[in-house]
Design a binder for these strands. Structure first.
Length: 151
DNA sequence: TTTCTAACA
DNA sequence: TGTTAGCA
């Protein structure tokens, strides 16, 4: 499938790619690990970033021994407020800033500065797709504030 | 045939 | 995670 010059795959193909059931892929979405787009008919379709994320998830599960809850926890401690350079005022009113039980893209509400934005297009979500460089990605997230002060 | 949601093993 | 039911 192709949409906006980007290739998309149905859940069956994706499940086949990683040798897992479609139910497993759906479980990743249900737990907030991935945010596949959906058609009007509710059908999920996955782009390259989704595929990359799933590869990372599979790697953490099979090679690091983590489960879905463990991966969700890692995603939940991403300092999105540093990535988005949120002001003190923004942080005060943002539920994601005060919650570490779910990734920000799961608890976003319309009252926060991220309200009208699509998390699928946010670096907080997108940059977590590279498993091989996960540690550096997290490190970069945490040092953004310092770099902003320098520059 | 494939995918969907929801409930349950 | 997997399975099943009932639907589109």
């Amino acid at each position: 499938m192709k949409r906006n010059d980007e290739l998309y795959y149905p859940i069956g193909i994706v499940a086949e790619m990683f040798d897992v059931s479609v139910g497993t892929i759906r479980a990743y979405e249900k737990e907030g690990l991935i945010l596949p787009r959906k058609t009007e008919g509710k059908h999920r379709y996955f782009n390259r970033n989704d595929i990359s994320r799933i590869a990372c998830i599979r790697k953490m599960i099979t090679e690091k021994g983590l489960n879905i809850a463990g991966i969700k926890m890692i995603f939940s401690i991403i300092p999105c407020w540093e990535v988005k350079q949120c002001s003190t005022e923004d942080r005060t009113h943002c539920p994601a800033y005060h919650n570490a039980d779910a990734p920000c893209w799961e608890i976003k509400n319309m009252d926060s500065v991220c309200g009208p934005l699509d998390c699928r297009e946010c670096p907080v979500y997108i940059d977590m797709h590279n498993c091989d460089d996960l540690k550096n990605t997290l490190k970069r997230f945490y040092t953004l504030k310092k770099e902003a002060k320098k520059g």
